[in-house]
Every structure is written in C-alpha cells, then in structure tokens.
Simulated scan of single mutants.
Amino acid sequence: MGTPASIVRVEPVSQADADAWCEVVTASMAEDLADVPPPTRAQEHARLTGPGTGSRLLAWLAYEDDGGSRGRAVGAATLRLFDREGQDHLAEVDLHIRPDARRRGIGTQLLSAMVAEAASAGCRSLIAEAPACSPADLFCVRHGFRRALTLHHLLLPLCEVHRGWLDELTTAEHPGYRTAEWHGTVPDALADAFAAAKTAMNDMPTGDLDHGSVAWDAERVRAMAAVVTGRGDTLLTVAAVHGAENAEVAGFTEVVIPGGTAARAQQYDTTVVPAHRGHGLGVWLKAHMLRRLHDEYPQVTEVETGNAADNTHMLAVNEQLGFRRLRTTYEYQLALTERTEREEPA
C-alpha cells in the first residue's frame, strides 16, 4: 500500500499552494478525463481563493515525505460547505490523486479529513462526481458512497452548426415572447424576474440525489455573477421575456467562457419555467446563444453541457442542436450519519 502521505490543510491558499494543486489536477485529469481541458494556474488560484455563493471552500494537499522534508504534492482535495438555506445539509467533495501515487491510501486519508470536517459542520451527506468506469468511480463504491444520479456530458463543435440554420431557428416566431441578452450581471429591471426563473429550476430531474432546493433572489443572482466574473470567466445569458409590464423571465440559458478566452465554453443553467413550456423556448434560447458565440466570441470552437440521464426533454433539445455524447459521469452521495455510526468503536 506504500507510505501514507502528509496531509496538509491549506488556509489561506497561497499561489504556491494553487500551483501545486494545479499540477496534481492536471496529472489526474490527463489520466481520467483526457477529453477535458485542464484548468490554468490562474483559474485554479481564483477558484481556491475567491468567495463562494452561499458556500465556503476548504482545501487540502497531500505531500510525499522526502527524507523528512516535504516532497512533491501527490493529492489535492476541496470540500465545499453550503450555508444557504435548503442546501445547508450538503457538502461537495472534489478529490484528485496523481496516477503514479494511487493505491497508497492517500485518497482515503484526504477523504477522512473531509468527512470529519463536514460532520463537525453538521452536514448529513457528501456529494462527489466520478467519471464512469474510472478509478474515482471504484473509489466511491469502496468508500460507501451510493450512486444517485447519472449525467451525460455532450459536446457541440461550433464548426458543425451552420450560421444560416441558427438564423432560421432564432427568427422563428414566438408570439408574446422576446429575448433579452446580457454579459455578467442581470440588468436591474429583470433581476427579480430572473431570480424567480432560477428558483423554478428546483423541479429539474436529480435522480435519487438529495440535492435540496435553493430559493434565489436578486441579491443572490448578482452575487453568483460577481463570483464568475471575479475569477476571470465570462458569463453570458440569453432570456425569454414574457409580457411588457411586470415582465416574467419565461426561460433562460447561461454559458461561461473560462478565463474569457477558452476555446471550449461551458453550458451552465438552462431552464424554461413550467408555465411556459411547450412553446419551443428551449431550442430558441440555445440557438440565440450559439449565434451569439458565433458572432461575438470567435475563439470559442465548442460548447460542453451536461444533462441528467432522466432529463429526457433537455437531452432532446441538445441533440436537436447537434450536441453528441462525450462521456458519462455519476453523482455519488455518502450519508455521514451512517458512516459515523459504522466507525464508532463497539
């Protein structure tokens, strides 16, 4: 099994800590997620040190012992503790081990540190994501996590989307609806309506995952945009607006461009409010977003999105637009109360 590594809680996170973190994550992803661009050092430093939205992030590094001194970093982990009502029972785990340092108990050491911290914070469950049929997948099973949700990740190469076809989709009539677009923070006039549409996402399929619910308000949506912008990413939103006075946001789609210049954009939230479904707004909104990327962000060559396996409607929308399956991941959940009871001495 090998000599266990030294586990260090890093607080505050220095640039050197973030650099070590990035090296571990890059090596781990090259082995397990070769089709995903690794984060840059600047992105990781911003993520590890920036404020969260309704949460706080704790970080650990695992170091090899090198003759009594600290050697290279071989493991990295974060624990996101939620403090927003509706999700304060949850914590999210992100854990990476260098491929040549696996099967030595380092991941188990890091997980134990995070379980103890989450339990002391009053959390009742941990959530972790693992690529299907990967070492992380097996690690979760071996440590008592329960598979709760299957996610299909899809990729759309923009070179395969004809600009004329997008024009046809975006000019199709949707009586009573108009689009609104913004960069970063939502305009004040739409902030409350946008928050209400965000809250409507609580009905999205989440399998057996105890993900809780989130009540959004104008302050929270502004804070979320500030976090994304603060770490150097570009947040784009296209919304469908219904009505003139007391206008509703009937649906929206968000895309984030990492670092503001990345070639692969990441799809964030997309939803249509229940009362406005059945009018083709999902395809209409996403086509507007793709046209916006074509026109304003030529460096973006592809868009990645992820959908729950049982979210058949959104999967159909994405496949209609040309997205194709890239990989599958699983969301795992660990009940902390059950784990604590098992580990208590007789």
Rank of each mutant, 00 (worst) to 15 (best):
Q15W: 13
A20V: 00
V24Q: 05
A27E: 15
A30G: 15
A30R: 05
D35P: 02
P38H: 07
T40C: 07
T40R: 09
R41D: 04
A46M: 05
G50I: 04
P51M: 03
A59E: 05
E64P: 05
D65A: 14
R72G: 12
R80C: 12
L81Q: 11
L81S: 07
D83A: 06
D83H: 14
Q87T: 12
H89Q: 14
L90Q: 13
V93G: 11
H96G: 06
P99D: 08
R102T: 14
R102D: 06
R104G: 08
G105H: 11
A113Y: 01
A113N: 06
A118L: 03
S120V: 06
A121F: 04
G122P: 10
A132C: 12
S134A: 02
L138H: 12
C140P: 04
F145L: 05
R146L: 01
A148H: 04
H153N: 12
L154D: 09
R163P: 03
T170Y: 02
E173S: 05
H174V: 02
H183E: 12
A191F: 10
A197D: 02
T199F: 02
A200T: 12
M201H: 08
M204G: 09
D208V: 00
L209M: 13
D210I: 00
G212Y: 02
G212D: 05
V214G: 10
V214L: 14
W216N: 04
E219D: 15
R220G: 04
A223W: 07
V227A: 11
G230Q: 05
D233F: 01
D233R: 03
T234M: 00
V238E: 02
V238T: 15
A239R: 10
A240F: 09
H242W: 11
E254T: 09
V256E: 11
I257M: 07
G259A: 04
R264E: 15
T271M: 06
H276P: 03
H276S: 02
R277N: 06
V283D: 01
L285Q: 12
R292P: 00
L293K: 00
T301A: 09
E302H: 11
E304W: 06
A308C: 03
A309D: 15
E319S: 10
E319M: 10
E319L: 08
E319Q: 15
R325A: 08
Y330M: 10
Y330L: 06
E331A: 14
L336A: 10
T340D: 13
